Amino acid sequence: MISLIAALAVDRVIGMENAMPWNLPADLAWFKRNTLNKPVIMGRHTWESIGRPLPGRKNIILSSQPGTDDRVTWVKSVDEAIAACGDVPEIMVIGGGRVYEQFLPKAQKLYLTHIDAEVEGDTHFPDYEPDDWESVFSEFHDADAQNSHSYCFEILERR
């Protein structure tokens, strides 16, 4: 099963200049909980913004210009990325925008964090048809001392 995991502000903004323009430790914990011990696929820009392999996960970098870091697996196509994951129950696609666009048609599940923030962004989550998805989990949280904005975790499964 292919799943996408993303944090989205208003207007589906997911990033600005290779960074997330908010401070939500709870979302980072949600991300870790849902990706640990699963292969993660990301684009080169996302890889560069993280700066290191995510521990406890097979890191697969999709790029037309593969790098030389041998701590991760470099691939040039969506099919190659899927094959590099091996026989696993769930593959997690973690961004960025172009990689989400490439995998959305193949995805069966979306793990979304909806952030109540209007922020400037240069990267967006692809538009998706809500009628194609069923919400199977939703959990709202107010902003607090650690988390700069209110947010809602949601899991959607393709109908």
Rank of each mutant, 00 (worst) to 15 (best):
P53N: 07
P66Y: 11
W74E: 10
F125Y: 02
W47D: 03
H45C: 03
E17K: 01
V13L: 04
E154M: 15
R12T: 03
P21Q: 03
E129R: 11
D69E: 08
P25L: 06
T68K: 08
D144M: 04
Y151T: 13
F103Y: 01
P105G: 09
W30N: 14
S49Y: 01
V93C: 10
Q108M: 06
D132Y: 14
M16E: 02
K76S: 05
L4V: 02
I82A: 12
P53A: 10
A9D: 02
V119I: 08
E139T: 09
S77E: 14
H149K: 03
D116N: 15
K109M: 06
W30A: 09
I155T: 06
P53H: 12
L36Y: 08
N147D: 01
S138M: 08
Y128R: 11
K38A: 07
V75T: 08
I82C: 07
I82R: 08
H45M: 03
Q108C: 07
A6V: 08
G56Y: 10
A9I: 10
P39E: 14
F140G: 14
I61K: 00
R44P: 00
D127Q: 13
G97V: 00
E101Y: 07
E120M: 13
A19H: 11
I155E: 07
L62C: 15
L112V: 08
G121H: 01
R159E: 14
M42N: 01
R52W: 08
P39H: 15
L28V: 00
A26G: 02
T73W: 11
S77F: 15
A84K: 05
N34L: 06
L62W: 02
E139C: 05
N37Y: 12
Q102H: 14
V136W: 08
E154Y: 15
N37Q: 08
V88R: 09
Y151F: 07
G121S: 01
A19G: 12
S135K: 15
E80F: 11
D144A: 05
G43S: 00
T35R: 00
N18C: 07
A19W: 08
N18V: 02
V119Q: 14
D116G: 15
K32R: 03
V93G: 05
T73L: 11
P130F: 12
G67D: 13
I91D: 00
V88E: 08
G121L: 00
N23H: 07
Q108R: 08
R33Q: 13
E157S: 10
P53S: 09
A117I: 10
L156P: 01
V72R: 07
W47I: 15
K109Y: 13
E17T: 01
V88C: 07
A26W: 02
Q108N: 10
V78W: 15
P21C: 14
N59F: 05
S49M: 00
P55N: 12
K38I: 11
D127Y: 15
M42W: 01
Y128N: 04
V13F: 03
R57V: 00
G15L: 01
W30H: 15
G67A: 12
P25E: 04
E139L: 08
I91E: 02
G121T: 00
P21H: 01
N34M: 03
D144N: 05
F137M: 11
C152H: 14
A9G: 06
R98T: 03
I14Q: 00
N59K: 08
W74S: 09
E157I: 04
T113C: 06
I94Q: 04
I5N: 01
S135M: 09
S3L: 00
P66F: 15
V75S: 07
E134F: 10
E157Y: 05
C85I: 15
S64G: 13
G67N: 08
V72P: 09
P105L: 10
F31C: 01
S64V: 09
D144S: 09
G86K: 11
K76W: 09
E120T: 13
D122V: 01
E101C: 08
Q65Y: 12
R44N: 15
R98K: 06
S148P: 00
P25G: 05
G15P: 01
I94S: 03
R71K: 06
T68C: 13
R158T: 08
K106D: 06
H141R: 04
P66W: 09
K109H: 14
P89H: 08
V136E: 08
V99I: 14
S150A: 07
F125H: 02
N59V: 13
F31P: 02
P55G: 09
P126Q: 15
L4G: 00
T73F: 04
H149C: 04
I91R: 06
F137W: 06
H114V: 15
M92G: 05
D142R: 11
A26C: 01
D131N: 05
T113S: 06
N34Q: 14
A83Q: 07
R71N: 10
A83L: 09
E120I: 08
L62E: 01
V78E: 15
V78Q: 11
F125W: 12
I115E: 03
E154S: 15
D131G: 03
N18F: 13
V78S: 12
N59H: 09
A9N: 15
F125V: 01
P130I: 13
N59L: 03
G67M: 13
R12C: 12
E134R: 11
V75I: 14
Y111N: 03
D144Y: 03
S3M: 00
S64M: 13
G56W: 07
A143R: 08
K32G: 03
C85N: 14
A29G: 03
E101N: 06
R158V: 08
S77A: 10
D127M: 13
V119C: 14
S64F: 13
V119G: 04
R12K: 15
S77V: 15
V13Y: 00
N23K: 00
V72F: 14
V13D: 01
S49P: 01
E120F: 14
E134V: 11
H141M: 05
D144R: 03
I155R: 09
D142G: 11
L36V: 02
D11F: 00
T123K: 10
A83E: 07
D131T: 04
H45L: 02
C152L: 12
K106I: 10
N37F: 11
V88W: 13
V40S: 12
V99S: 11
I115H: 06
A29P: 00
V136D: 10
S3I: 03
M92P: 04
I14L: 15
D132Q: 09
S148G: 00
W74M: 11
E118T: 14
L8T: 11
A117L: 02
S148L: 00
S148Q: 00
H114F: 14
M20C: 00
E17D: 08
A145H: 10
E101L: 08
F137K: 10
D70F: 08
G86D: 07
W74N: 09
N147G: 03
V72E: 06
Y111S: 00
D11V: 03
N37M: 12
D127W: 12
Y111W: 04
P39A: 09
L112R: 02
A145Y: 07
G67T: 14
A9S: 13
I82V: 09
I155A: 05
I60Q: 02
P66A: 06
P66K: 08
P21M: 01
W30V: 04
E80K: 04
Y111R: 00
S138I: 14
A117F: 00
K109T: 12
L4I: 13
